[in-house]
Design a protein around this nucleic acid. Structure first.
Lengths: 226, 226
DNA sequence: CGACCGTATTAGACGCGCCGAATTCCTAAG
DNA sequence: CTTAGGAATTCGGCGCGTCTAATACGGTCG
């Protein structure tokens, strides 16, 4: 197929926005913002995708990926998350360093590299942020389960499942305070304006503004005794 | 400075051709052949280099790298050889797989990645083929010492220092027959038309055509007893 | 139902890296 | 000293990915 690195970025962006948004179709402006380019640039790329059978488009309405387009996106995401896992585990990368590196390398590694990395890590199913890694057959990963921390109720005890890796600063902030995948949290307070205060497993309480708490996905934990 | 991957490839090519050739200046046609592009393409790149202070040029005569241009070339070569070493040692890459992978990745790894890989390998000074890895300060590595296998005399015992990685097929051919860096060889026959027959350390004799034997660099070994 | 406003698309342009064709330059042979 | 042949450069053009400015569309509010 021979797609450029730039094309791969567009397909990945569309896939991710498709997942986030409520509706199916992804709008030109959303892609433009995400990739920091202007809308006309997006439009011309989209028509190229349509010609190549990577996306279905309804003019002035938005796009959806075809199966082919989705496969490419999943391949790129698999590369990205495997790289994040590998760099963190074997090359001492911190959470804030790992994202940019993976964003560049994901387009340039071979199938061989992918295989070897996956084998070395023993076929991991989630990356260090808790995001699911598509398997080698590129089947779409299961929808994330559980709730968003911002929607939890006071008194609940939950376990962190996934921390969004969109913003490296948020990531570092959370990681420094012990809010990492696998950690148990008790929800101590939910302020009316959205602020959430949680106490990680044997740590100090941490207060998070709503838009940060919205990037943390959690699952309820069985209570100690009923 | 922000150079493109393509520019880095040109600078690396010029550096390597500069080392090989007798004279100083590298000719347009040599670069064109090496990179598999046409001469006009090279010319336009060379004038860009001149503007940017990366190369000195005498029109119709050839080109030489400036100190700046050389530093970029050495950085890329350092990336390439560190990657070769790392991929071979930690990700099970074979000699024939490693070159292409490194050729792509060398342009896309960060300084952080470079550092971490170098640290993991404990600052290696040669790559798996025996080629010297420029140090982190990017000083030009010492000129290769020793002779080319094609020029050795019958009866000599030599140790393999470096095997050129230009042609993956040649590499695989040699590696399969035990002609690897560090191995001792006794030169058994030198045919008038250039063919050399050697016997690796406790292996079967191997005959090599001259142009292959020219890609193997060796150093004399002290004789057992005088 | 129509006008308006925000969003999307089309139109035209630019730099990069590449090409083929035409031209200019160097050099070595006579 | 001249000239022919090979090498390098200039010229014009192309696809990619980007932009700005101009235009077309469509949902919403009066």
């Amino acid at each position: 197929m021979m797609l450029s690195a730039v094309m791969e970025d567009y397909l990945k962006a569309i896939y991710q926005l498709q997942g986030e948004g409520d509706g199916e179709r992804v709008r030109t402006s959303a892609i433009a913002e995400h990739l920091e380019v202007t809308p006309p640039t997006v439009t011309s790329m989209l028509s190229k995708f349509e010609e190549r059978g990577l996306a279905d488009r309804e003019k002035y309405k938005g796009v959806t990926l075809t199966t082919d387009g989705e496969r490419v996106a999943l391949e790129v995401i698999r590369h990205h998350r495997l790289l994040e896992a590998y760099l963190t585990e074997h090359l001492d990368f911190t959470w804030s360093e790992v994202h940019d590196e993976a964003d560049r390398l994901e387009h340039h590694i071979s199938e061989t590299f992918e295989e070897r990395v996956a084998a070395t890590l023993e076929d991991p199913t989630v990356d260090p942020h808790g995001a699911p890694i598509p398997n080698a057959d590129l089947e779409p990963p299961a929808e994330p389960t559980g709730d968003v921390l911002a929607d939890c109720e006071v008194g609940a005890t939950v376990e962190v499942r996934e921390v969004s890796d969109r913003d490296p600063d948020v990531l570092e902030y959370l990681s420094e305070r012990g809010v990492n995948p696998g950690v148990s949290l008790s929800v101590e307070e939910v302020a009316p304006f959205g602020m959430v205060t949680v106490r990680p497993d044997g740590g100090e309480p941490v207060s998070l503004p709503e838009d940060v708490a919205r990037h943390v996905r959690v699952a309820p934990v069985a209570e100690a005794v009923s």
